[in-house]
Design a protein around this nucleic acid. Structure first.
Length: 416
RNA sequence: GGGGGAGUGUCCCGAGCGGCAAAGGGGGCGGACUGUAAAUCCGCUGGCUUAGCCUUCGUAGGUUCGAGUCCUACCUCCCCCA
């Protein structure tokens, strides 16, 4: 690979964002020559994005920073079809209403990372339902479908894997790659978009778009993918057993988001600082050099910076302060998750077990009971030994009762 | 259409001579040790008003004192033949 000349590829490379690029030199030259327009597509399969999406958003952010124009493409049309990539089985088909609701709910997050201003480098939000929904079947087959070879489609990973494992692949899903390829061409024709980025599982779909573009006479298009992030222990990042690590604050409070980053494994700290914060590399190198318990300082910086990008500096600092009070002072910080109980029932007294269940720290009374036996529950930092205990007004400390499961999960119960 | 095989604990994989709340993993949660890390060790992992009761093995019936296990029908998936 020749020395990189463009800021764009330089930054993305040294921060570890790049997994594959279709034509490194060509893209480098294009980025150097002028403003390029790039898109990343987001399916509307859920009500919120999660940390798995963050990598591509950060790429768009750096790209905009380097003077180029990002497009966030909402998959209002493609989600009605469903991407088979990386999925074992057909997903439940979402209704159009659900997709629309999801789309609305996803939008806000992007504005935290990208500038949707009017300028030539301003980001754009586009929905592919705009051109996919009105398509006429016969026309589409003749104009676009004729460029696709079924022989080749069958050899694509997303299709091949399903066939090899004898897993159902509906004709509907089989069409997904055609629509995504067409999106790229459409975005090129409408907005001069020449680069599509995405996760490494999107490589095949993106390259299809480049091919289709060539056949339909667009300028040279480019593909760039980012790596699939696994934690050092080999788990796909952001998929906890409780569910995804959501970006929308009504799905995951800033404090809990901060906690997610704070609990990063030592071995991942440097990589995550590069990918998920905008700190300069020499600062990151300094933090990553910390050893032993000192690396916790780096984790706090990671947590605060990553949270600040998404939720703002103020909420990030508040989360950090709450964590400090909770974990270093052993008191209760104000940003801890809280849960309100009617004042009258508090006066009457509430059985501890059911209180833990209501607070979401136990899934059933039996679960809570087991946790008591295992020594995992605390009330106001006192280990809970008596599962019959009643919680009442007398247990309020500074207006709240602090319930804890293990050392990390705390909920404040307040009268309402 | 004909022949064969499979569906087990609402996270997954998976054993299961008619006595089964059902082996064993993985994952998860908790405890110990630590640094809110990793590794390691230990415990837990259907519900309840917990010496007991209730609900679970694709669905619905049946045989039996007793069914995940045997019988019948049906559903779904896979393989071979057409």
């Amino acid at each position: 690979m020749a020395a990189l000349k463009s800021d764009l590829l330089h930054v993305l490379t040294e921060r570890g964002f790049i997994h594959q690029v279709s034509d490194f030199e060509g893209l480098d030259a294009a980025a150097l020559a002028g403003r390029i327009t790039t898109y990343v597509g987001y399916d509307c399969t859920g009500p919120s994005l999660h940390v798995g999406h963050l990598l591509s958003i950060m790429m768009l952010r750096w790209l905009q920073q380097a003077g180029h124009r990002p497009i966030t493409l909402m998959g209002g049309g493609t989600t009605r079809v469903g991407d088979p990539s990386g999925k074992d089985a057909t997903r439940q088909l979402l209704t159009v209403d659900q997709i629309e609701a999801n789309k609305t709910s996803l939008r806000a997050v992007f504005a935290r990372f990208l500038d949707y201003g009017e300028g030539p480098g301003g980001a754009m939000m586009v929905d592919n339902a705009e051109w996919l929904a009105p398509l006429n079947y016969i026309d589409f087959l003749r104009d676009v479908g004729r460029h696709f070879s079924v022989n080749r489609m069958l050899s694509m990973d997303s299709v091949k894997l399903r066939l090899e494992r004898d897993q159902e692949l509906s004709f509907l899903e089989f069409n997904y790659m055609i629509l995504q390829a067409y999106d790229f061409v459409e975005l090129h024709q409408r907005y001069g978009c020449t680069l599509q980025m995405g996760g490494s599982d999107q490589w095949g779909n993106i390259v299809n778009g480049i091919d289709l573009g060539r056949r339909m006479g667009t300028a040279q298009l480019y593909a760039m993918t980012c790596p699939l992030i696994m934690t050092s222990s080999g788990v796909k990042m952001g998929k906890t057993a409780q569910g995804a690590v959501w970006l929308n604050r009504d799905h995951l409070a800033p404090y809990l988001y901060w906690q997610f980053w704070r609990n990063t494994e030592d071995a991942d700290v440097e990589r995550f600082l590069k990918l998920f914060t905008t700190l300069p590399l020499d600062e990151i190198a300094r933090l990553a050099a910390l050893r032993g318990a000192e690396i916790n300082e780096a984790k706090k910086v990671l947590a605060t910076e990553a949270t600040a990008l998404l939720h703002g500096r103020e909420d990030a600092d508040a989360a950090a302060e709450t964590a400090r009070k909770t974990f270093e002072e052993g008191t209760a910080g104000g940003e801890l998750p809280s849960f309100a109980v009617p004042a009258v029932s508090l006066d009457a007294g509430i059985p501890v077990l059911s209180l833990f269940v209501q607070a979401g720290l136990a899934s059933s009374n039996g679960d809570a009971r087991r946790q008591v036996k295992g020594g995992g529950l605390r009330v106001n930092d006192e280990p809970l030994a008596d599962e019959q205990r009643m919680i009442g007004r007398a247990d309020l400390v500074d207006g709240a009762v602090k319930l804890s499961l293990g050392r990390k999960k705390h909920v404040l119960v307040r009268p309402a």
